[in-house]
């Protein structure tokens, strides 16, 4: 049994890599290589930044065994703030975007930790609440950013911006003990508390940090689009979750998460969707396919042995 367990563990580790290579290969074949022309790759990359950045925060939340469904609305509201303030000063816009995200994260964390409501419920409530606010802010016209805001949207700038966030997050996660602590909370909250981890404080701060990171994603979103409409960031939360799971992340977090889940997952997801678009598959059929893929991956990566649940 143990040997099969080990090989099952190995398959689970290799699966996301194999999945990535398979998807890359499949669409190379189906699109006859069109997907990977320089122009299309640039386009693909430019569509990946927001997802990649937002995944970083949710990755930390999910490592602790939580979920965040408010990410899409959060991105929407942060984008409103960024676009609105970019008319005054771009740095101010970025900072206030982060603060907005951080505050929403604090609200999530507060209700999850202090009021002891599962993150699933809290963040779904906030998803509707903040979507409502975004809709209100954009009722008459979209919120337009400064006229020069899209000039930031160059490949070197956006790519560097994203990479810096990823590297900083990786270093903090891997080399400060934060990762160990978050994994311990995900794997066993009581035991983590008895090992001296300030579980409540950590949780609230991680929700807030995830919000601030999404504020940064909102900046990239804003320079790409230049304005915000009521649907900005729609379904980002599910995209994040599908991406992380595609990257090999167990939905219930814990000891088995790896930082590379973020990058692998976001890339696999974006290639998959871009490929489907290029093949001219209708949006509703795309959703159907994504649903099936998500279900299959969750079934593979859920950590059933340990019987953990999403908190």
């Amino acid at each position: 049994m143990g040997k099969t367990k080990n090989s099952a563990g190995l398959i689970r580790t290799l699966m996301p890599f194999a999945g990535f290579i398979f998807i890359v290969g499949l669409f190379a074949f189906l699109t006859k290589g069109r997907l990977y022309t320089v122009g299309n790759l640039k386009l693909l990359l430019s569509q990946t930044y927001v997802l990649l950045i937002a995944c970083v925060g949710v990755f930390m939340i999910m490592t602790m065994g939580g979920l965040d469904f408010s990410q899409g609305s959060m991105l929407g509201l942060c984008s409103v703030v960024v676009c609105y303030l970019s008319n005054i000063n771009i740095a101010l816009a970025v900072v206030c975007g982060m603060i907005t995200g951080g505050l929403i994260g604090l609200i999530n964390g507060f209700f999850n930790v202090k009021r002891k409501i599962t993150s699933f419920i809290v963040t779904i409530c906030n998803m509707y609440l903040f979507r409502g606010i975004v809709a209100y802010a954009t009722t008459k016209t979209p919120v337009y950013g400064a006229s020069n805001i899209t000039t930031y949207n160059t490949l070197p700038f956006a790519l560097t911006f994203t990479l810096v966030i990823l590297v900083v997050a990786f270093v903090i996660f891997q080399y400060t003990g934060l990762g160990n602590r978050l994994k311990a909370i995900g794997a066993g909250e009581t035991a983590a508390r008895f090992a001296g981890i300030r579980v409540e404080r950590t949780k609230i701060l991680v929700y807030a940090a995830a919000g601030m990171i999404t504020g940064l994603a909102a900046f990239i979103n804003s320079i790409k689009v230049g304005s915000v409409t009521a649907t900005a960031g729609n379904q980002l939360e599910t995209q994040i979750m599908i991406a992380l799971v595609l990257g090999g992340m167990p939905v219930n977090g814990g000891a088995k998460v790896k930082f590379y889940n973020i990058i692998l997952g976001a890339l696999t997801y974006k290639i998959l969707t871009a490929g489907l678009v290029m093949l001219g598959i209708e949006p509703k059929t795309q959703q159907l396919i994504m649903g099936i893929v998500f279900l299959v991956m969750v079934a593979i990566f859920a950590d059933r042995e340990t019987g953990m649940i999403v908190k």
């Binding site: 160990n180 602590r181 311990a184 066993g188 009581t190 035991a191 983590a192 008895f194 001296g196 953990m308």
Partner: peptide, 23 residues
Amino acid sequence: NESLVINDTIQDNICLPSLEELK
């Protein structure tokens, strides 16, 4: 439940309170 993070490795369990000293 309280002494050990049962769904984690031996290494993580031993190191958890000593992470700061290990830096």
